[in-house]
């Protein structure tokens, strides 16, 4: 099943977040997880040889319902991409600040908080 590939991509991203030490790689892994979910949503809506979901005046709604692709997940993915952009931008900004504060991107060396 093609959906399994999305889940594998998601888990690969999760693996990257949990295992990698470099902050930039962690950010990339999170973006990968986000894109895996977006891909999953898009694949939910896909229908081979589907038509655009526009109801013309002379068209039968039930036929359109059977042949058209689902437009809603595409709108959701657009929103999700925008949110992902915001999260990534904030993370990169924090990473720059962290680099200037600690002089490293290695999260094992960024340890002032304990307990």
């Amino acid at each position: 099943m093609i959906y399994t590939l999305c889940i594998i991509l998601f888990l690969l991203g999760l693996y990257g977040v949990l295992v990698k030490r470099n902050i930039i790689k962690i950010i990339i892994s999170l973006a990968m997880m986000n894109n895996a979910v977006n891909l999953f949503l898009i694949l939910l809506a896909y229908r081979s040889n589907g038509v655009a979901p526009i109801l013309d005046p002379g068209m039968d709604p039930s036929i359109l319902l059977e042949t058209s692709v689902d437009p809603l997940p595409q709108a959701l993915v657009l929103t999700s991409v925008v949110i992902g952009l915001g999260v990534t931008a904030l993370m990169v900004a924090l990473a720059i600040r962290l680099y200037h504060a600690y002089g490293t991107f290695d999260i094992t060396k960024i340890r002032k908080l304990k307990g």
């Binding site: 952009l85 931008a89 990169v92 900004a93 720059i96 600040r97 200037h100 504060a101």
Partner: peptide
């Protein structure tokens, strides 16, 4: 998006508060 790009590209570390 342009503001994000500019503020990331032109960030100056000396503006940062002292440790």
């Amino acid at each position: 998006l342009y503001t994000i790009f500019v503020s990331l590209a032109e960030y100056k570390p000396e503006l940062q508060e002292k440790e």
